[in-house]
Amino acid sequence: MIKPVLALLALCSPALADQSPLPFDLGGAFELVDQTGTARTQADPQGHPQLLFFGYANCREICSAALPMMAQVADAVAEQGITVTPVMITVDPARDTVDNLGPALAQHHEDFIGLTGTAAQLQVAYDAYQIETEEVFTDPEYGPVYAHGSFLYLLDAQGKLLTLVPPVITPEAAAGIVAKYTQGQS
């Protein structure tokens, strides 16, 4: 009797047990297209945990902080032997095309995955994460500026949400959160 209990306790990291669950139900299935034109779902084909963000490659606001941070987090956890795939789902499909996404995201990290799709396909992903987008104004130099949800979502390899990561904390702090959930998963 004692062995199963100890095994269960070993699975239950104290760091994860002593905290609140998320106050809402986020995540779910979607099917989009990556920057190579390949279909991709919420699951990582390579079996790695994923750091997901909704934004757009031309964004000069929160994305200009979040995308480099995601790259820094991926590099930081890689040093601990954890591979995390940074993924951005576009909220600006008119400009973030299959052809444009790759070069824009590669500036941040070579492993970055950019996802786009039809309006209906994207809406499925937005609905899964309760992402609302709105064009708030047009920057005369860089074009439309969109408001959009800006938390990072840490997913496991199957695409299940593990936790939120605010895009405003330090990359070191974010890497600590990611490592806590993904140690031994990749």
Partner: peptide, 20 residues
């Protein structure tokens, strides 16, 4: 500008803690 651009807001409590 930041809020309009998608940066999450927080509440800086009287206790000095930030609540996202």
């Amino acid at each position: 500008w930041c809020s309009a651009g998608g940066i999450p807001v927080g509440l800086l409590g009287e206790d000095g803690e930030v609540y996202m």
